[in-house]
Write a protein that binds this DNA or RNA. Structure first.
Lengths: 136, 136
DNA sequence: ATTTGTGCAAATCGTTTGCATCTGA
DNA sequence: TCAGATGCAAACGATTTGCACAAAT
């Protein structure tokens, strides 16, 4: 994705394409699907000579998430992961390494989900498949 | 579950059945399956005239979890939920209210889960079905 | 007697916010 | 020009930890 497209995308989301937002979007969306924490993104930005404060990284991630450009992934534990793939999909999680990645299959379906309680409807379904090193 | 059983269970887990642990276990396991945060448990304990510090509640919850008496449920957001039902099951989560409860079905199965990456094996699978008030 | 648990307050850590200063349109 | 964005540091809220005291074996 080139920066023009990114700028367009940001504008479309009602966000001004500022220096920092463009740079962060470039890092986030420029290399396939990513699962990243605020801290990691901040480190990459600084490494890429894009000085940006951690606070702005947080703000930007939240804005992007609100705009539907990112999706938050709930993992127990302290830090929050942001996923650049906002389509319907599920995750593998390697606890030992804190590594998170997509389940490469859209075949995955759930069977036997009961009717939700009255007056409620099902929104998103999150699935985390926890992996561990095989021991045997 | 009476306190004698609880004491036995704690001992079996290598934990001394102290006053506070017994009281907390009583609250946790004495009334069916529960999904509770440290703060909530602390409030209940205090209300039940069992003075216990929040720090001890945290320590106890973590010890119980380590001993397999509780299970941690990953919900995005700040607080951690502990589930007294450690068997294989999944959850509904009402975002608006921060309410978490079991999916009443063991029929629920996953179809199409691809082979895990080489050297890895599947551990636990977490499923959160997010509910929202029906709008229509 | 010894080991382990508890309480309190202080320390951590991720994340958010207030406010003065910049910047994009 | 001027609403909106950024940076910094301070504020925050959940959770953990250090240490002196108390309780369990």
């Amino acid at each position: 994705m080139n920066s023009e497209t990114v700028a367009t995308r940001l504008r479309g989301a009602g966000l001004r394409p500022t220096r920092q937002r463009l740079a962060l979007a470039e890092i986030l969306f420029g290399a396939g699907d990513r699962h990243i924490t605020a801290e990691q993104l901040h480190a990459e930005a600084v490494a890429a000579r894009v000085p940006v404060s951690l606070a702005t990284v947080y703000n930007t991630l939240n804005q992007f998430t609100g705009a539907g450009l990112l999706r938050e992934v709930a993992i127990e534990g302290d830090r929050t992961y942001f996923d650049t793939n906002t389509s319907n999909h599920y995750h593998y999680y390697v606890e030992r390494e804190g590594r998170l990645f997509d389940i490469a299959s859209d075949e995955l379906t759930i069977k036997g989900l009961p009717e939700p309680p009255p007056g409620m409807e099902v929104g998103r379904i999150d699935i985390i498949v926890r992996l561990k090193a095989r021991q045997s």
